[in-house]
Design a binder for these strands. Structure first.
Lengths: 121, 121
DNA sequence: CAGCATCCGGGATGATACTG
DNA sequence: CAGTATCATCCCGGATGCTG
């Protein structure tokens, strides 16, 4: 099991420095909306409108931008069906499922602890 | 094992909605600098100056701000020694160690995959 | 050494209107 | 339905100078 940053650097090199690819990916998947979009897609394929409703408070602009970023990263897949009215579906890729497998325990912990953390203020 | 958002909501209720405490905590620990500071502290206690050097590219302002937020959340502990010159140490709390236990696998995955993800662009 | 106060520019974000 | 375009705004975050 991973227990330290040093351990990660042993296998992956000098990582998380400025301009490093790891920083970029981290910014994408740990961004305010990135996490929530990925979380919504964990339960399965969703259409644009469903995502808009599922991710509470997101604007159309940020949804579009977040989806494009994550798609370019190969973490989610966009499928457009040539119908009228148009139908577009978003789903996690295999890479995305790998990612969420590791993010879910973290998110679950936050869900359980958040009340206590914010309350104690 | 956790496999879905629905599953998390079964035990934690309607979570990750706007204004929900989970959103606040998520913003703190998944923030650009929050992750990197926590990561640095995973390997043990660090002084202010050490953190400044360890977290590549962080400004004094953001370091101070990030540390204050995480301390208020009870995730890190600040210890000030009454010496001249002053010495201040930062470390993960028990809560913080719980958190990093869950965040490290995710970070490790990013460290291993980031090159491929950014390169394929 | 370990910060805090202040200024300020720009990118992130939101609101609204429009389109294929 | 699934977006794009445009404009307005806000606050993140860097730079600088100062202090106990």
């Amino acid at each position: 099991m991973v227990v330290s940053l040093a351990q990660i650097r042993e296998t992956s090199g000098e990582v998380f420095t400025e301009g490093c690819p790891t920083r970029v990916v981290l910014d994408h998947i740990m961004s305010k909306w990135g996490v929530l979009v990925l979380l919504a897609l964990t339960d399965g394929t969703l259409r644009w409108g469903e995502l808009r409703r599922e991710v509470d408070g997101i604007s159309e602009k940020m949804l579009a931008s977040t989806l494009r970023t994550l798609e370019a990263d190969g973490i989610i897949a966009r499928t457009s069906y040539p119908e009228v009215p148009p139908r577009v579906e978003y789903a996690l890729t295999e890479l995305g499922r790998e990612l969420m497998e590791r993010m879910l325990p973290l998110v679950e912990w936050v869900a359980q602890r958040a009340d206590g953390i914010v309350a104690e203020r």
